[in-house]
Amino acid sequence: MTNTEVKFKDFIRIIGRGQRAGRTLTQSEAKQAMSMLINGEATPEQQGAFLMLLRVREETAEELAGFTEAFRGFNSESLQLLSIDLDMGCYAGKRRHLPWFLLAAMLLGQNGKRVFLHGTHEPDSKRLYLKEVLPQLGFDICESSEQARTRINSFGFAYMDLKSINPQLDRIVQLRDLFGLRSCANTLARLLNPSNATHSLQGIFHRKVDEKHQETAALLEDKNTLCFRGEGGELEFNPLRDVTFFINRGTAKSTVDIPNTLDTYVTKPKELDPLCLVSVWTGQTKDDYAEHALLGTLASMLILVDKLDWEAAYAKASRMWEARVKAWPVTLPSTKSDAVTFDTSGKHYVH
């Protein structure tokens, strides 16, 4: 099927003809189909049919690789000049615990690495997103690569919203408001690596998706990625359960089984107050769960970035935490009138 012959409905026909007559897309077909969708060569009805057919059947690694290639073509070139060490796509949101992974990112930045975080906000999912948390902690949401460069030079990390990075992909993510379901766009955002960082950390929710991420990264020939089932689907180590890290070094794939680090059962708090992140960082509050979560997350980063084994990475993470500069690096907002405490008892949607 050549570019001059193909119409978007042809791709819908390929994936929608049923179990016997239909088939999956090749990587090149997937790239072409998603490129057409991005460029407005599909009607809204065709876009919905295509995305929801994929949702029901689930995407293959080849399809995800092709879709990712299409969206990477729209990444800002200026972001790729930031010389980022670690890319972190934060798209799940939290509903049981605070985003302790943020402290791990801060600590890695405090130790000389350049960390780029990106994410979005889905009102329908009723989760706590980093975009809501950071302003309460005194950190700006960057809207340009120059703002990100300034924040990274100052603090070692920066956060940008997907809408400012790749509005084409964010538009697909926000279609959840119409569908009532997530599409593959959330997976693609995790795989996006918009800054072309040398390493990419990815957290997922469902079983077996980590394996698919690993296979997709191999097809894309991404040089250094680590994917695991994180707490609530976020890229945060859950100290209460065993987990497997799926690691890519180019086309070389490996797995590492990690045991839980905390045996004491932890009841989720009724509310999540972002300012607790500050009190744990400064040492005003002692929280075993928080420390185990951030140390495990930091250790996963060190396995990826410094190529350490788990024991060495966890030991180094512990030393870095003990040696941290405990002063909060920015001035907190002078008023709490805009502060938001997140109710964990409500209904929250899985991924």
Rank of each mutant, 00 (worst) to 15 (best):
V209A: 14
K223F: 10
T198F: 01
L220R: 05
N193K: 00
L201R: 00
L240C: 12
Q202C: 14
A197M: 09
Q202S: 12
D242V: 01
L240P: 06
K208G: 08
K223C: 07
H199S: 15
P239H: 02
Q214H: 15
T198C: 12
Q214V: 10
T198Q: 07
R207A: 10
E236G: 14
G233M: 13
S195D: 14
L220W: 10
K208N: 15
L201A: 07
G232V: 10
P239W: 01
H213T: 07
F205S: 15
N196L: 09
E221Q: 15
R207P: 05
R207S: 08
L235K: 01
R229D: 14
G203R: 01
F228I: 13
I204D: 15
R190A: 11
E215M: 10
L240T: 08
G203M: 01
L192I: 02
A217T: 15
R190S: 14
F237C: 13
A218V: 03
T216E: 08
L188R: 03
N238H: 02
H213S: 05
E221T: 04
N238S: 14
L219Q: 04
K208V: 12
N196E: 11
E236W: 11
D210K: 15
T198N: 10
K208S: 15
F228L: 07
N196Q: 13
E215F: 13
L226H: 07
N186C: 05
N186M: 05
I204E: 14
A197Q: 11
R241E: 11
R241W: 04
G203A: 09
N238P: 14
G233T: 04
R229E: 15
C227R: 05
E215Y: 12
N186G: 06
F237D: 03
E236Y: 10
P239D: 10
V209H: 11
D242H: 04
P239R: 05
K212C: 03
E215T: 08
L220S: 10
P239Y: 04
G203H: 02
L188M: 05
D210L: 05
E215A: 09
G230C: 00
H213F: 11
F228R: 05
H213C: 02
G203V: 01
T198A: 12
E234M: 04
G230S: 00
E234C: 07
L201T: 00
T216Q: 05
L240N: 13
E231F: 14
H213G: 11
P239G: 04
I204A: 14
G233D: 13
E236C: 06
L192H: 08
R229I: 15
N224K: 15
V209F: 03
L219C: 02
N196K: 10
A197S: 12
L240M: 12
R229N: 14
L235I: 09
E231P: 04
L240W: 04
E221V: 02
G232N: 13
E231A: 15
D210C: 11
A197V: 09
V209Q: 10
G233L: 09
E231K: 08
A218C: 05
H206M: 07
L192S: 10
K223P: 09
A189P: 01
L188W: 01
G203Y: 00
L201D: 00
N224P: 03
E236P: 12
H206E: 13
H206W: 02
T216K: 07
R241F: 08
V209R: 09
T187R: 09
L191I: 12
T225F: 00
G230Y: 00
N193T: 00
K223A: 15
A197F: 03
N238F: 09
A218I: 02
F205P: 01
F228M: 12
E221A: 11
A197H: 06
L191H: 00
